[in-house]
Each structure stands twice: as structure tokens, then as C-alpha cells.
């Protein structure tokens, strides 16, 4: 952790009722950095993101974003500060059109310039008047990311962006994520290790609720190295 970090989580302990899920978890992200969290199912990766996004309240620990304490803030306040969370389930607002989904993102951030969205995802241009409920999984993910990048958030938390998607869409998303990280810091939870190793600048390996490794050396960011910690 350094002074230049935009997002810092320290000593996070989180429990679902009596069941403790995170144990002294930590994470730090510099502006424009692409960080991934890897781990098996149930390791606590998504819980870490949800806690940072304000959806879950930790029993102890701290989260600071741009030197502001996030603990106790509502998730919508955190989103307004420029820290957006894209959940794992690809549930969009199915009764709204693609255009209306994007308008929701625009109105909240007062950013009505959709050019970056359609540049990253040209496919969305032809889908503007379609109900989001009729989109494919890949198109939904494009919409969710496109909606979240409106307002140029400083940090994007993305939970399993490639889960269940076709290889061609995963390849496209990989390029998009790399491009996005030039403008916003990204924290991605992902199980696709080849993808993780191809795009990450830093990897946190999480096992049974604990951060067991923090890999920052580019030479060590390899699928074989990550696997050791899982």
C-alpha cells in the first residue's frame, strides 16, 4: 500500500450472520491499475467487492477511496463518488430498453456522452430500442459495463465479467478491459486464469476468506503461479 493508492481496504472482516466470510482482507489499487482477485468458489472474492461497494457492512476494518472513508456510506453514495460496482449476475433492467438502461446511467452521472460506450461496444448501437430482457448474455454484460462507465468512474469493481460467455466475446471483453484500465482503475474478480494473467498488473489470491498472496511482479503473473494459491 502506498500514498498514491486510490482505493485501500484494510483488515476487512465480514460475516453473514454467524458465518464469517472475510478475515482481515486487504486490497489496494493505484489510479489506472488493473487488479484482479482470484480464488475458488466461496473464497470470499465477491464478498470483498460487495463490501467495498457498500452493499455489505464489515464487522471491522476500513475502506478508503480517494482518502475518504467509505464505511457507513450507502452504496448509492459510493457510486456517486465514482466507485461503480458491476455485479456477477447479468441481470439488467429487463423491462427497459437498452437506451433507457443507458439513460439511467447518464442521468445519475450527468454524463450524456455515449460515444465511449458505443466505441467499446459498437453492437449496442443497433440494439438501442430493444428490451434489455431480450439481450444475450454477452450483450447484457456489454450493457452493464457500458452503463457503469458513464460518468468516467475512477474505480470499477467488476464481478466475474466473462462467466458463461462465448470465447469470442471473452476475447472482446479482454481488449475492452485493458482499454478501460487506461481511464479507470479496475478491480476484477475472475476465475479465468489465462485471462487474468493476460491483463492484470496485480493479483490477489483469496482462499477461505483470507488474502493468501499479492502478486505484483510481472514475471510471476502466470497461471501456474496463481494456481498454487488456489
Amino acid at each position: 500500500m502506498s500514498d498514491g493508492d486510490i482505493l485501500v481496504a484494510r483488515g476487512l472482516n465480514v460475516a453473514y450472520g454467524e458465518s464469517k466470510v472475510l478475515f482481515d482482507a486487504h486490497l489496494s489499487v493505484r489510479p489506472g491499475q488493473l487488479v484482479t482477485c482470484v480464488g475458488r468458489n466461496g473464497a470470499g472474492k465477491s464478498t470483498l467487492l460487495k463490501t467495498i461497494a457498500g452493499f455489505l457492512k464489515p464487522t471491522s476494518g476500513s475502506v478508503t477511496f480517494n482518502n475518504a472513508n467509505l464505511i457507513g456510506l450507502m452504496s448509492y453514495d459510493i457510486a456517486r463518488m465514482g466507485l461503480k460496482y458491476i455485479p456477477q449476475d447479468k441481470k439488467v433492467f429487463s423491462d427497459l430498453t437498452v437506451r433507457e438502461n443507458l439513460e439511467l446511467g447518464s442521468y445519475a452521472t450527468k454524463d450524456y456522452n455515449w460515444t465511449p460506450v458505443t466505441d467499446y461496444f459498437p453492437r449496442l448501437k443497433s440494439l438501442m430500442d430493444r428490451k434489455a430482457g431480450y439481450l444475450s448474455g454477452g450483450e447484457r454484460q456489454m450493457l452493464m459495463i457500458g452503463r457503469a462507465i458513464l460518468g468516467s468512474p475512477k474505480v470499477l469493481l467488476i464481478d466475474e465479467p466473462t462467466e458463461g460467455l462465448a470465447p469470442s466475446i471473452v476475447a472482446h471483453l479482454k481488449d475492452v478491459l485493458k482499454e478501460l484500465s487506461k481511464k479507470s482503475a479496475l478491480v476484477i474478480v475472475e476465475q479465468n486464469l489465462p485471462l487474468v494473467c493476460a491483463i492484470s498488473e496485480k493479483i490477489y489470491a483469496i482462499k477461505e476468506g483470507r488474502v493468501v498472496a499479492e502478486i505484483t511482479d510481472p514475471a510471476s503473473i502466470k497461471a501456474g503461479v496463481c494456481e498454487k494459491f488456489l
Binding site: M74, A79, F93, A148
Partner: peptide
């Protein structure tokens, strides 16, 4: 439809 997602948008 999804109150949580709306919060994540601000």
C-alpha cells in the same frame, strides 16, 4: 426489477 442494481448506479 432490481433495487440493488439501481443503488450501484447511484
Amino acid at each position: 426489477i432490481n433495487e440493488d442494481k439501481l443503488q450501484f448506479l447511484g
